[in-house]
Simulated scan of single mutants.
Amino acid sequence: MSLSGEGAASMVASALSRRAAPVRAEFLRELLAYAAAGLAVIETPPAAAEALYRLADAVVEHGPP
């Protein structure tokens, strides 16, 4: 993981630790939605699409709960 990725992971972990367990999933869903929207605005369409496809692949690979 890159240094900036480690910083982002630390920020997310910190934000999750301040939330009660029942609301953590909702927080992550909102974070992902805002991050995806941000990528669509600041990245080229192919770069944003690749990041979103990788995220979708991770969800599909994980499978249903």
Rank of each mutant, 00 (worst) to 15 (best):
A13S: 14
Y34P: 01
A8R: 15
R18N: 08
F27A: 03
A56Y: 04
A49W: 04
G7F: 09
L3Y: 07
A13G: 10
P64Q: 12
S14E: 14
A21E: 08
G38F: 14
L31K: 05
A49K: 11
L16G: 04
S2A: 01
M11D: 15
A58G: 13
P45E: 05
L39T: 06
V41L: 12
D57G: 02
A21I: 05
A13E: 13
R29K: 14
M11G: 10
L52A: 10
A49Q: 10
L31D: 01
H62S: 11
R19D: 03
V12L: 14
G38D: 14
A37R: 15
V12A: 10
V12R: 09
A13V: 08
S4W: 09
A37V: 12
S2Y: 02
L3R: 11
L52W: 00
R29C: 11
L16E: 03
A8W: 12
A13W: 04
S17N: 12
P64Y: 12
A8V: 14
E6I: 08
G38C: 09
R24W: 00
P45F: 00
E50T: 04
R29S: 10
L28F: 03
V12I: 15
A20P: 02
V41F: 08
A13T: 11
S2F: 00
V12T: 12
S4G: 00
D57M: 03
A25M: 04
E6P: 00
L16Q: 02
P65L: 12
